[in-house]
Computed example of a mutant assay.
Amino acid sequence: MADTKVSRNKQARNAERRQCERELAEALERRDETEPPLEVEEEAVAVEPAALRAADSGADGEGATE
């Protein structure tokens, strides 16, 4: 194939099409797999409620001293 703008564009389109086909084939192969469970760290769960309370008290203006 000659090295022209048209041929480069055609090669790029073909490469993109092949990539999409590979991604689709992989997705179809994996469609029956289940999602892995999310791992929750105990520290993050313990800290989160306190962080939410602090954010709530400052967000509405209550508890602020001037």
Rank of each mutant, 00 (worst) to 15 (best):
E66P: 05
E23T: 13
R18A: 09
A44H: 02
K10M: 08
K10L: 11
D32W: 06
A55S: 10
R8N: 11
E62R: 11
A55V: 08
C20L: 10
Q19R: 14
E23P: 01
N14Y: 00
Q11L: 06
R8A: 14
T34Y: 01
V45F: 01
R53Y: 12
N9A: 05
P49S: 11
N9Q: 05
G61L: 07
D32N: 08
N14F: 00
P37N: 04
A15P: 01
E21H: 13
L28E: 15
E62D: 07
V45Q: 01
E41T: 05
L38W: 05
G63L: 07
R30N: 14
E16S: 03
K10T: 10
T65I: 13
E21K: 14
Q19Y: 10
A25D: 04
E43A: 05
A44T: 07
R8Y: 05
R18I: 00
C20K: 13
V40D: 03
A55H: 12
R30Q: 15
D32F: 06
E66C: 12
S57E: 09
E35N: 09
A12G: 04
V47P: 00
E21P: 00
E48Y: 09
E29M: 10
L52N: 10
A50Y: 12
A50W: 11
L24E: 05
E29L: 06
V45I: 08
A54Y: 14
E29A: 09
R22I: 00
N9V: 02
R13L: 04
S57P: 01
D32P: 00
E35D: 11
A51R: 15
E39N: 10
A50C: 11
E23Y: 12
P36A: 09
R17D: 01
Q19T: 08
L52C: 08
E26I: 14
A55R: 13
G58S: 01
R18S: 02
A25Y: 02
E42Q: 08
L28P: 00
